[in-house]
Design a protein around this nucleic acid. Structure first.
Lengths: 339, 339
DNA sequence: CGTGAAAGCTGAACCGGTTAAGAACGCGGC
DNA sequence: GCCGCGTTCTTAACCGGTTCAGCTTTCACG
């Protein structure tokens, strides 16, 4: 049984295929009676529009958008962020009947190649850029391509692309003030890779917030979001003569790793060390002590980013927006210092 | 600047577009000289084949395959399994120039709708089915559809679809023997949802292995892979009069949750309770004590499944295969019972 | 009753490829 | 000199939609 086409519908209805096209797309050009008859026949035949055929027509859309994730596979596995983001994006795309094409790359060059290929072969109608870097080559490249895009991050460094940015500084202030109020005067931050824009934003915000809150000793060390790197970094920090009394991690996985190191080194959490995770997932609630975390609504960000991209693809004027800032959810891993 | 098409190439080369098509596809019908000239021109113009146009031709392929993940978003976030699987699939697809379309659904009906839509609208060339269920409606449905598919799981219940199955029984035997050797005589298993085929396979294997190893008291309770469900189940098990001395969890996230409960209830791991996780991720190595786990090479399974699907799409006769069984990696969460 | 406009529909071109059928050509053999 | 054949290329149809130009038919209006 061949897929039915509009020609089959036209034959049954006794009209031309042009008329069928008008009827099915709700465009003027056919009478209401005829339209209804054609719709009924289409339903009876189980007709569905051919994606490739639609895309081929002048001005046609492919009905898919792309997302490239450029992080090593093993790191990705346990990063709740991406799957949450994907669910959010998906939720929004599904109602529009648009598919999500996902690509996992090992380096940035491969990521750029993916965008170029998608544009050249017309595989997607647009892309969402995540993990904005300092001097990110993707922005310029994608702007050149006939490929609508929105950036999750920014607004600095997003070039002319509309972006969904979040106020990292506000959340950071909340964290630092909270820790300062608990009596902490030595706070270290185990950050993500230095190359990421949001890492740099947070680092700046961290310093500013610490100064404002009167926290004398701060320090930022960089890791790569993996547990191993966080383990090494935490060991070094806890071995310092004047060791920090509070640690802020740039993702929850690293915070879990830090918790393990503290345990291993006999440093009690939270009486001797407070730990804060940036980004919350079920993980934070499962480990003991449970982790205080900055909670962002990643699913909603995904939805919003998808919505913006669909707008761009449709040709609407899309403006950058701000996502609600993360909120601090105190749990068992933070507290006042034991005397 | 419009995307160049083969007509542009034909014009520059002074030949017909048919000749260009033959040349670009390595088919006979043009001289070697002409072919080379056409290839050079194509490169100079930056030509790339239009996906939609290719797909539209009779017998044409879309150049994409689909994967539906039917698990709640929050559970998915931290499940390393899927992202690992996706990376593996991706790695194989990329070399073939095929894209991966990912869809996250909230229920099985939505999943079925996705397959139907993909087939009807020709959005993908084939699909990979994961999380095979007992009496899975997807198998019959997809077999009816003009949509090549392979199953990750089985072989029972995969119907006529080729599958990549793993020997759950072998791994289960290894776990049970190991725990029995450590002196455990009461082993409980916190399994995934009863509806999953692999859950049932493991449950059967668990009973058989326990009998074989002389483990008298066994018990399987079902959870849904989330930390919350595992927390509840673990609490109940540890509150039993004759409480089990070893717990086997069907994924690593639940094992982490179980570890938290043990801690909370003052049950020491591993001296009073041993914990085994099925599926290993960085998580298992990060928590304290680190978790003994069954390690499967999920990335390779993804690669293999993708390879099989590409074979099916190409029309090759693809036969079911067995993935290498999981292996037990003992860590700190298992040990002999304290006297 | 003639005229103009709007409604409703048809025919054909077009998107960018693939491919079957056929034409032009050179060449060897008889 | 003619025939048959293989090579190389062209022509045209086809995939399944969209859309524009134009042709009827109907109908209101003067």
């Amino acid at each position: 049984m061949r897929r039915p086409t509009i020609v089959d519908i036209a034959r049954v209805a006794g009209v031309s295929k042009g008329a069928v096209s008008y009827a099915l797309n709700g465009k003027p050009g056919v009478s209401e009676r005829t339209r209804q008859r054609i719709l009924d026949i289409a339903r009876d035949l189980g007709w569905a529009p051919s994606g490739p055929a639609r895309a081929l027509s002048p001005g046609g859309r492919v009905g898919a958008v792309g997302l490239v994730v450029d992080r090593p596979a093993h790191a990705l596995g346990v990063e709740p962020f991406f799957m949450q983001l994907v669910s959010g994006i998906e939720a929004e795309l599904t109602v529009a009947g648009v598919d999500l094409v996902l690509h996992v790359t090992e380096d940035q060059e491969a990521e750029l190649a993916a965008y170029r290929r998608w544009a050249a072969e017309r595989r997607v109608d647009g892309v969402i850029l995540v993990d904005l870097r300092v001097d990110d080559p993707r922005v310029g490249e994608v702007e050149e391509l006939p490929l609508p895009a929105v950036v999750l991050g920014g607004p600095e460094g997003a070039g002319g692309l509309p972006c969904l940015h979040s106020d990292e500084a506000a959340a950071m202030r909340e964290v630092v003030r909270y820790l300062a109020a608990l009596g902490h005067r030595g706070i270290a931050r185990i950050a993500g890779p230095e190359g990421f824009r949001h890492t740099r934003d947070r680092t700046r915000a961290f310093r500013a917030a610490a100064e404002e809150a009167g926290v004398a000793r701060t320090r930022t060390v960089h890791a790569d979001y993996t547990g191993e790197a966080a383990t090494r970094a935490t060991r070094r920090l806890l071995a310092l003569a004047e060791r920090p009394t509070a640690l802020v991690y740039d993702n929850d996985l690293m915070a879990v790793a830090g918790l393990g190191v503290a345990r291993e080194m006999g440093v009690d959490v939270p009486s001797q060390l407070s730990i804060v995770a940036w980004d919350d997932s079920v993980l934070c609630g499962l480990v003991r002590p449970s982790l205080t975390a900055i909670v962002r609504d990643t699913v909603s960000s995904g939805r919003e980013a998808a919505r913006m991209l669909l707008g761009r693809v449709a040709g609407d004027g899309v403006v950058s927006r701000q996502a609600p800032p993360g909120e601090l959810h105190p749990r068992a891993s933070t507290g006042p210092l034991a005397p």
